[in-house]
């Protein structure tokens, strides 16, 4: 599984402050810590605090790629902010994210095609998040069609089935599992599946337990990537064990250590 490290986000207090004060060392330290903890991709989100979000995204990208060669997920719902990040990004990039809403979908896919990068598409359309697995699959198909129309290889699309907090909408987690299973059958090569894991436990108790349990369930359905707190060691251990149990990684007695080498 591709672990997309979620910690460089202006919503976190220390990161928000560092963005505001342009203190690159805090950001770079977090980038390195996540890389050491096993992140395959680093998510970058300037958060709500930044005054000039485009400038802030450019600065984030530049600061992080000074210390890491990992692919960067340029995380914003705003096309201009994403474009600003992509323009200075020398590492591999992933757009995070578009929705199935026509106007945004077209603009973001154009950007992805122009920069030859991957793109995460949320199963949300003009009506919001569909309540059923079938509804989410319809949007997934729309995302896939748009990617193909723009000449983006199908395996550069990540379908995010939008997990919602279990304490509010308890019927969502099983529906998202259904979507994860089905995404892999949409095309050949198949699009990837991704979830923003921490959202499943937003506002709930025993968050870490909920997160890692749900991640393992998703992996059993073939999840390709997840935006996660890679610094949560128990979560990463559960992920590594699940990869071994799914025969996606070769077992060795020190399999946990092997993953982190």
């Amino acid at each position: 599984m591709e672990a997309i490290g979620e910690r460089i986000n202006g919503m976190f207090k220390a990161i928000g402050k560092a963005i505001k004060e342009q203190d690159a060392s805090v950001i770079q330290d977090m980038a390195k810590r996540q890389e050491e903890a096993g992140a395959d991709v680093l998510d970058l989100n300037v958060g709500p605090a930044a005054e000039d979000r485009e400038a802030a995204m450019r600065w984030l990208v530049e600061s992080v790629q000074e210390v890491s060669d990992l692919p960067l997920a340029i995380d914003s719902t705003n096309v201009d902010v994403v474009r600003a990040g992509l323009e200075v990004c020398e590492n591999e990039a992933i757009i995070n994210s578009t929705t199935g809403e026509a106007e945004k979908l077209n603009a973001m896919m154009l950007l992805a095609a122009e920069h030859g990068c991957s793109i995460i598409g949320l199963t949300i359309d003009e009506e919001g998040v569909p309540g059923t697995a079938e509804g989410r699959m319809e949007v997934a198909l729309k995302l896939l069609t748009a990617a193909m129309e723009h000449g983006i290889p199908t395996d550069k699309l990540y379908v995010d089935a939008v997990i919602l907090p279990v304490n509010a909408l308890q019927d969502t987690p099983p529906r998202v599992l259904e979507v994860i299973s089905q995404v892999s059958m949409l095309a050949d090569p198949p699009p990837k599946s991704v979830i923003g894991l921490s959202n499943v436990s937003q506002g709930a108790q025993f968050r870490s337990l909920l997160n890692r349990t749900y991640l393992v369930m998703c992996l059993a359905r073939g999840l390709s990537a997840a935006i996660v707190d890679v610094l949560d060691e128990e979560l990463m251990d559960a992920m590594i064990a699940a990869e071994v149990l799914m025969n996606r990684a070769v077992y060795a007695d020190d399999f946990l250590k092997a993953y982190r080498k």
Binding site: V250, Y251, A252, D253
Partner: peptide
């Protein structure tokens, strides 16, 4: 034994 092969790599790396 691929599992042992991997384990020896880990040990050597250690």
């Amino acid at each position: 034994d691929i599992n042992i092969q991997k384990q020896v790599s880990i040990l050597l790396s250690d």
